[in-house]
Design a protein around this nucleic acid. Structure first.
Lengths: 346, 346
DNA sequence: GCACACAAATGAAATGTTTCAAGACGGATT
DNA sequence: AATCCGTCTTGAAACATTTCATTTGTGTGC
């Protein structure tokens, strides 16, 4: 029960007890190599004995910025972003930094709130998947001199780093695979088409069609309200109403695909027997579905990691002449049961 | 491009420009009602114009503690904990606090690291699901006078608050349901039996057996290595090797259940036709499985919320005579297709 | 015109670190 | 003995805020 009474023990108390100056205690903590061994040991012992813990806020005050990077994602309920967070956290810890993970839940208001919070905390930088397609929130944020890196979004102008995945290519991979399985028509289940992701994946699908000489009309588009399982279920129901019944479905993310799968299953439609299904993201639950889902894998962990690394590079020591960079990672098709041995459509 | 050159604008700059003292600026920000309206407006205008943002670290330094509560969970890949986090975040924001979510990944080392980090940050308090069953990490943490609340764990001695769910009751709910469906034997797929959760749910299941006059031997126990889908798949394979084939399976969490479901599906075993399956937690993916899972719902959001509220109460203004409290929430059985109309076993 | 009350504004102290120029100490070189 | 050098150590300044005991200002009642 040390410290229950009285105030917190500070560097001064340690200095007094160890019979040295505060500067020396600070050196023991931050640059032990420049303190004589005997002194160092003595101070260390006192630190232990008193249970001294450095106060980060004072440290930050002096340093002018914190040792935290912020990660602002669209949807923590989506395992994809959890994976991104893991990657960012890994890179941050290697650099001795902490990560503050926040969920904008796609709300502009929440996003703005959090950006304000980050500014007050003088975070080292922000990794962000903007909810704000127009960029107004971020525009205001620039004033604070806090660098940010876009995650899972390409940024047109070169005023920030970005890490994204080639979504057009991802769509193409899915399209080629389905066409190679003999399908001549594909239903594309997307989320809101404002999202660049949804646009790009569609474009990629159409590119695959073009490659194989299929007309754009071979794509039937169902636009779901949100990128979640419930919306996927709805989309699945709508899909079942189409006649003749589609034989191939490509979903803009795995949550939608799981919803569609459920709807198909409930209607007694066999996957992949009657309908082939491709998802996107390759979250763990895609592989874990009753019928393991074929999915376009996004390197989520690597994306989070790369984004954090870019930020650390930008805010590091010799970061005078930092050039913003765009990293585009490549997706990968993971074939599983949900597109295995489909019955070619006429 | 304000502030790109020169240093950060502080309260002093605002004071100078507005022709008032720093104390007044501080008052405008923190207790606007004690500043004359005209002054207030003038200061506000300058704040806007200069883009002043309060520096949290200085504020904290003065206050002695931060405005952040930490949440340390076992597994962020488990949607259950994501939901807990959401609940905690909600309560925290209502109190004007931030939440720092961290993932111990069940590693004692990570847990210790994070606790150290929290101490340095002088967090307001910690909500924790200890990875450390023995409590050594937390024992050391007590020295820092940082209060904590146990989440999803009951604490025997009364030296901290806790919020948990009655796991024995949950096991009983599952057991009664399966017995009512005519099953006379149940396979219990658990995670590591050191975990109190796994013990309690088993105890609950046995209690249901006892109620109905079934012997304890009617329970076959499969202990999985971890509480995740892959382990569930393994458990499913082991389960299929049992002869005669079990007709009812109760899993200690939904991830395990999804793994089992997949294994059964791959083997062509019909759920619920041949085997009834009950999970635990009722994560979103349980309802979203191809065969929607019957599951024991834990009020995860409420749990996170209640925990944060307890902490806020403990660290609030009039918290002199705080009495530690234990809140035990009740689970609820959500019946879905995976246990519907099973074929009674002999 | 004086005392008093009240509101509003002030300015200095305090918070716990890090950093850095300067000082102290010993030993080696002249 | 004086000088220099290198290694350790020191002590004070700086960081940006909040708080609080004072001061200033203004109107009111006598």
């Amino acid at each position: 029960m040390v410290g229950v009474v009285g105030r917190m023990v500070g560097i001064k108390d340690v200095a007094r007890q160890a019979g040295v100056s505060v500067g020396t205690v600070s050196n023991v903590i931050n640059r032990p190599e420049m303190v004589a061994e005997t002194t160092r040991d003595r101070v260390q012992a006192v630190i232990e004995r008193l249970g001294y813990v450095r106060q980060e806020s004072a440290r930050q005050l002096r340093a002018g910025r914190s040792r935290i990077i912020a990660l602002l994602v669209l949807d923590m309920a989506n395992p994809f972003f959890v994976e991104v967070a893991r990657g960012a956290e890994r890179a941050a810890r290697e650099a001795g930094l902490g990560v503050m993970v926040c969920n904008s839940a796609q709300s502009l208001e929440e996003e703005a709130d959090y950006l304000g919070l980050f500014a007050e905390h003088r975070v080292r930088g922000v990794l962000v998947t903007p909810a704000d397609v127009t960029g107004t929130n971020l525009e205001g944020f620039r004033r604070h001199d806090i660098p940010f890196v876009f995650v899972d979004r390409e940024v047109p102008s070169g005023d920030a780093c970005s890490v994204s995945v080639d979504d057009v290519e991802g769509g193409t991979l899915a399209g080629r695979h389905l066409i190679a399985q003999g399908h001549r028509s594909v239903v594309y289940v997307s989320g809101p088409m404002q999202l660049p992701q949804c646009q790009d994946r569609r474009a990629g699908l159409l590119a695959a069609f073009a490659e194989e000489g299929l007309p754009a009309e071979a794509m039937v588009h169902i636009e779901a309200e949100r990128l979640d399982v419930a919306s996927g279920r709805d989309a699945g129901a709508r899909l079942l109403g189409i006649s003749p019944r589609p034989t191939a479905v490509f979903c803009a993310n795995d949550l939608l695909a799981l919803g569609v799968l459920q709807a198909l299953f409930a209607a007694g439609v066999s996957v992949p027997g009657e309908v082939a299904l491709v998802g996107y993201d390759d979250i763990e639950f895609a592989a874990a579905a009753a019928v393991p889902l074929t999915s376009v894998r996004q390197p989520a962990f690597r994306m989070g990691r790369a984004a954090a690394e870019l930020l650390i590079e930008e805010t590091g020591e010799g970061a005078d002449g930092h050039q913003h960079r765009r990293i585009v990672l490549q997706p990968e098709l993971v074939v599983r049961d949900s597109t295995f041995a489909p019955r070619p459509a006429g």
